[in-house]
Design a protein around this nucleic acid. Structure first.
Length: 824
RNA sequence: GCCGGUGUGGUGGAAUUGGCAGACACAGCAGACUCAAAAUCUGCCGCCGUCAAAAGCGUGCCGGUUCAAGUCCGGCCACCGGCACCA
C-alpha cells in the first residue's frame, strides 16, 4: 500500500490549485457573501508560529463557509511600510523597498506552502504606489472634513526610532516597537480628530456582540468617558475665573482649595505683581524637569505651592486657596481641579501635607464619620449630604444631579462629558511611509496636493544613516515644489503617516483592489464588507482595532460606504508558547514553521495547532503533540485506503436497513460527528473539539479493520469524513478524495449534512442514583416512557439492595438520563 | 484601586441548557506482530483502597441553593491582561 508522503501530495495540489485559480472570487449579489479575514502581517521576512496559527484558523473559517454555500472573500496582503525596512537600510545599506519586497516574496512562498485558500489576485501591499495613493487621498478626505489638523503640542518622542508616537503607541512610558523610554517634545504635528467620534466609538461597542468582552473593555477603558460638571470659580481681586471639572459635584460644598496643573496658562497672570512669583516658577521648573513616567508614578509624592491668591467657591462663597501642583494633568478636563479633601484620596493627602482645611459633606448611612477620627477620605458613592446648605440631607445620587442643575441655573457651570481618549498623532519623521500630501506655501499656507497629483511619491535620492531624523527633509527633489494654488516656490511636508493609517482601511481595499478611480467602489465594499470574521492577536485590541473603527465611521459619514462597524465578529487568538514563554529569538525557543512543514507537511502543522488548544487560549508547543497529529493523519490515510474497494463500490444511495448492528452504530456515530463538527466550527469556533470528534470517528472506523464493511456505508463515511476534514487538512483530503474515486475537488463539495433520526440510538444507558450518587447503570429501550423507565430502574437489584429498610422520600426521573432515588 | 479573563489528572484539554467529571490527545505501562528494533494494531491509565470489587475522596479555597453543582448564588485566594494622579 502507498505510504502517506505529505511532501509529495502537498506540492502537487498546491500547484494544481494555483494553476486552476480555484480560490478566485468575484462579487455576486445573487449569492450570500462571507468575508473571512486574518490580520495582514508585517513583512519581517519569515512566518512564525503565530502567523501559522492565525492563518490556519482563518483558512478553516473560509473553507467551511465556502463549502456551506457562501461566496467567500479570503484575501491576504502586507502591512509593508514601517521602521524595520528603514533600519535594514541603515544597517545593511539595502533600499527599504528592496528589503521589503524580497521579504514579501519569501513570506508569500511560505504562506503558499501552508495551502491557504487566498485569492492572491486581491493581494494588497500598503507600500505600493497604487495603495498609498489612496491612503493619501483618504488623508485629504479627512482634512476636508475638518478631521485632520496640525498643531503644536507636547508629543511623545522616541529617540531610538527618531520619530513621534501616538498615545496608543506608548506602553508604560515606553515605545511599543523598540521598548525604549519615551520623552516629551514640543512639536508641530498632524493629528486626526478621533475624539469627535469618541461617543460613537464607545456606544457602538455595545453592538459588537461577536467581540470578546475583554477587547471591548480595553477600548472602553481607553476611551474613558466620564460625566460631570464643569464650573467656574471667580478669582478674588482679579477679573479672572478658573474653570474646574468634576465627576463629584455632590461634594462641591467641601472645596477647600483649587489645584492647578503646572502648565496651566492662568499661572502667568497669577504671578503678576506676586511676591511669590519666583518661588512658583522654581516649583514649575522642578516639576517639568521630571519625566512623564516619574511624574505620573504612584510613588511620586503630591507636591504643590500656594500662589497666595484665593478663588471663591460659587456654591457657598467660601474663600479657597489656589495651588500649583505636580499631580494635576494639564491636558485632561480643564487642567484645574477642585480640592475636596474629605471626598478624594489625593486631595486628602495633599490637604494633610500642607495643613489645608477639610470640610465633611457626606455621611454614610450605616455609620457616622467624624473628621478627627478619619485617616483617609470617604470616597464611597453612598450617603447623605451634610454642610451643603439647601442640599443638606439629600441622597448623594440625587444631590449630584440637583447640584449640576443648580450650577446651570445660576449660570456658573454646565454638564460636561470628558474623555481620556486624545486625538491621534499621525506624523512620523521617517522615510518608509506614505508622505503626508500637503504643501506649505509662503503665501497660501498649508495646501493639499491636488487629487490628480497623487500619489506624492517617495523619492529615491535619500541616504540612510544612523540617527538621521526625517530623511525626506534631506531630499532636495522631494522638498522643493510649487504651490498648487499660486505657483510660488513652496516646500512639502516631510513627515510620513503613521503606518496604522495604512492598516486602518486595507480590509476595504481587498473588496476592490485594482480600482484606479477610487479607494474602492461603493457597491463592492457594501457587498463584501463588513468583515464577517476577523482573526488576529490581542495586541491590536486598542491600536489597530480602534483606528479601523474610527476610519469606517468617517468613511460612512463621507458616503463611501453604508455600515457602521468594520468587523462584525472578532476572534483574538492566543499566543504560541514554548517552555512557558512566548516564542522569541532572544529566548531561543523558536520553532520554525518551515522546518515543521518540511518534516511533517502543512496538514500536520495545521492540524496540531488547531487541535492543541482552543483558538483564543495560549498554545503550548509540543513536538510530541505534532507527532500525534501526524500519526492521526497516517491513520486516516491507511484506513481510507484499506476500505478503498468498498468505498469505490458504494453509492450515495444505499439500503440502510441492510446494515448489521455494528454498522448501524457506525452510521449513527458518523451522523453524530457531522452534527458536532458542524456545530463546533460554525457557531463555537471550537476547532479542538471538532478535531477530537473526527478522531473518535476514525477510531470507530478502525473497529471494522478486521471485518467486512458495507460498501454503501463505507462510501458514505469516507465521503463525509473527508469533507469534514477538508478545511483543517486540505491536501491529504484532496488526495484521498481523488484516490477513492470521488468526483471533482473535495474543496468544491458541499458541507455534509446529517440526518437527525440517524443520530438516535435504539437503546440508551440510564443511570441509577441514590441520593445523587451514581450506583448503577442499565441499558434500556430508547422508546420506553418515563414511567416504564423509572420502573425498570427501580427494579434493579442494586436499587432494591440500597433502599432496603430505608424510607424513599422522593424519586426524580429525568427521561433518557437518570433516576435518582432519595432515601432516608 | 477599578475593569475583564482564567483556575479541572503526570501534561494539553473535554463536559454546549444544573443531570454519569476527566471525551480526544500527549506521556507512561502492558500485549500482538517481528530473529530483533522501528513502524503499526489492541488494551490499561484521577487519588485512595482492593487478589478483584465495594466503599471513600476529587474540578483554586470557604459557605449556600438543589434530589443533583466544574456549571447557579454569596464571600475569598492565586495567576494573566487592560486602565490608572483622568479629578
Amino acid at each position: 500500500m502507498d505510504k502517506y508522503i505529505p511532501q509529495e501530495i502537498e506540492k502537487k495540489w498546491q500547484k494544481q490549485w494555483e494553476e486552476q485559480d480555484v480560490y478566485h472570487t468575484e462579487a455576486d449579489p445573487s449569492r450570500p457573501k462571507y468575508y473571512a479575514l486574518e490580520m495582514f502581517p508585517y513583512p519581517s521576512g519569515n512566518l512564525h508560529m503565530g502567523h501559522v496559527r492565525n492563518y490556519s484558523i482563518g483558512d478553516v473559517v473560509a473553507r467551511f463557509h465556502a463549502m456551506s454555500g457562501y461566496n467567500v472573500l479570503h484575501p491576504m496582503g502586507f502591512d509593508s511600510f514601517g521602521m524595520p525596512a528603514e533600519n535594514a537600510a541603515i544597517k545593511h545599506g539595502v533600499k527599504p523597498s528592496d528589503w521589503t519586497y524580497s521579504n514579501i516574496e519569501n513570506m508569500i512562498r511560505q504562506q503558499k506552502e501552508m495551502g491557504l485558500s487566498y485569492d492572491w489576485d486581491r493581494k494588497v501591499l500598503t507600500c505600493r504606489e497604487d495603495y498609498y495613493r489612496w491612503t493619501q487621498w483618504l488623508f485629504e478626505l479627512f482634512y476636508k472634513r475638518g478631521l485632520a489638523y496640525k498643531k503644536k503640542a507636547t508629543v511623545n518622542w522616541c529617540d531610538t526610532c527618531g520619530t513621534v508616537l501616538a498615545n496608543e503607541q506608548v506602553i508604560d512610558g515606553k515605545c511599543w516597537r523598540c521598548d525604549s523610554k519615551v520623552e516629551k517634545k514640543a512639536l508641530s504635528q498632524w493629528f486626526l480628530k478621533i475624539t469627535d467620534y469618541a461617543d460613537e466609538l464607545l456606544a457602538d461597542l455595545d453592538k459588537l456582540e461577536g467581540w470578546p468582552e475583554r477587547v471591548k473593555t480595553m477600548q472602553r477603558n481607553w476611551i474613558g468617558r466620564s460625566e460631570g460638571l464643569e464650573f467656574e470659580l471667580p478669582i478674588e481681586g482679579m477679573d479672572e475665573k478658573i474653570s474646574v471639572y468634576t465627576t463629584r459635584p455632590d461634594t462641591a460644598y467641601g472645596i477647600t482649595f483649587v489645584a492647578l496643573a503646572a502648565e496651566h496658562e492662568i499661572i502667568d497672570k497669577l504671578c503678576e505683581n506676586n511676591p511669590r512669583a519666583e518661588a512658583i516658577h522654581a516649583f514649575i521648573k522642578k516639576v517639568q524637569d521630571q519625566s512623564d513616567v516619574e511624574r505620573t508614578s504612584e510613588a511620586s509624592e503630591k507636591e504643590g505651592i500656594f500662589t497666595g491668591v484665593y478663588a471663591i467657591n460659587p456654591f457657598n462663597g467660601n474663600k479657597v486657596q489656589l495651588w500649583v501642583t505636580n499631580y494635576v494633568l494639564a491636558d485632561y478636563g480643564t487642567g484645574a481641579v477642585m480640592g475636596v479633601p474629605s471626598g478624594d484620596t489625593r486631595d486628602w493627602m495633599f490637604a494633610k501635607k500642607y495643613d489645608l482645611p477639610i470640610i465633611l459633606t457626606l455621611q454614610p448611612k450605616d455609620k457616622e464619620l467624624k473628621l478627627e477620627e478619619m485617616d483617609t477620605a470617604y470616597v464611597e458613592h453612598e450617603g447623605r449630604l451634610v454642610n451643603s446648605e439647601q442640599f443638606t440631607g439629600m441622597d448623594m445620587h440625587e444631590a449630584l444631579h440637583a447640584i449640576i442643575d443648580y450650577a446651570e441655573e445660576k449660570g456658573f457651570g454646565k454638564r460636561k462629558v470628558n474623555y481620556r481618549l486624545r486625538d491621534w498623532l499621525i506624523s512620523r519623521q521617517r522615510y518608509w511611509g506614505a508622505p503626508i500630501p500637503v504643501i506649505n506655501c509662503p503665501h497660501c499656507g498649508e495646501v493639499l496636493v491636488p487629487e490628480e497629483d497623487l500619489p506624492v511619491k517617495l523619492p529615491e535620492d535619500v541616504s540612510f544613516e544612523q540617527g538621521v531624523v526625517s530623511p525626506l527633509a534631506n531630499s532636495e527633489s522631494f522638498v522643493h515644489c510649487k504651490c498648487p494654488k499660486c505657483g510660488a516656490d513652496a516646500t512639502r511636508e516631510t513627515d510620513t503617516m503613521d503606518t496604522f493609517i495604512c492598516s486602518s482601511w486595507y480590509f476595504l481595499r481587498y473588496t476592490d483592489p485594482h480600482n484606479t478611480e477610487l479607494p474602492f467602489a461603493k457597491d463592492k465594499v457594501n457587498y463584501w464588507a463588513p468583515v464577517d470574521q476577523y482573526i488576529g492577536g490581542i495586541e491590536h485590541a486598542i491600536l489597530h482595532l480602534l483606528y479601523s473603527r474610527f476610519f469606517t465611521k468617517v468613511l460612512r459619514d463621507a458616503g463611501l460606504l453604508d455600515f457602521d462597524e468594520p468587523f462584525t465578529r472578532l476572534l483574538t487568538q492566543g499566543m504560541v508558547i514554548k517552555d512557558g514563554s512566548k516564542m522569541s529569538k532572544s529566548k531561543g525557543n523558536v520553532v520554525s514553521p518551515e522546518e515543521i512543514i518540511g518534516k511533517y507537511g502543512a496538514d500536520t502543522a495545521r492540524l496540531f495547532i488547531l487541535f492543541a488548544a482552543p483558538v483564543d487560549r495560549d498554545l503550548e508547543w509540543s513536538d510530541q503533540g505534532v507527532e500525534g497529529a501526524y500519526r492521526f493523519l497516517g491513520r486516516v490515510w491507511r484506513i481510507m485506503l484499506h476500505f478503498a474497494d468498498a468505498i469505490k463500490a458504494g453509492q450515495d444511495d444505499y439500503d440502510v436497513k441492510a446494515l448489521d448492528k455494528e454498522e448501524k452504530e457506525l452510521r449513527r456515530q458518523l451522523h453524530i460527528a457531522i452534527k458536532k463538527v458542524t456545530n463546533d466550527v460554525k457557531d463555537r469556533f471550537m476547532f479542538n473539539t471538532a478535531i477530537s470528534t473526527l478522531m473518535e470517528l476514525v477510531n470507530d472506523l478502525y473497529k471494522f479493520q478486521n471485518r467486512e464493511l458495507n460498501a454503501g456505508l463505507a462510501h458514505e463515511t469516507a465521503s463525509a469524513l473527508l469533507r469534514l476534514m477538508a478545511p483543517f487538512t486540505p491536501h491529504i483530503t484532496e488526495e484521498l478524495w481523488h484516490r477513492l474515486g470521488f468526483a471533482g475537488s473535495v474543496h468544491q463539495q458541499s458541507w455534509p449534512t446529517y440526518d437527525e433520526d440517524a443520530t438516535k440510538a435504539s437503546t440508551i444507558e440510564v443511570v441509577l442514583q441514590i441520593n445523587g450518587k451514581v450506583r448503577d447503570k442499565v441499558t434500556i429501550d430508547a422508546g420506553l416512557s418515563r414511567e416504564a423507565m423509572q420502573d425498570v430502574v427501580m427494579q434493579l437489584p442494586r436499587a432494591k439492595e440500597l433502599t432496603e429498610g430505608k424510607t424513599i422520600v422522593k424519586v426524580i426521573c429525568v427521561p433518557k438520563k437518570l433516576v435518582n432515588i432519595v432515601v432516608k
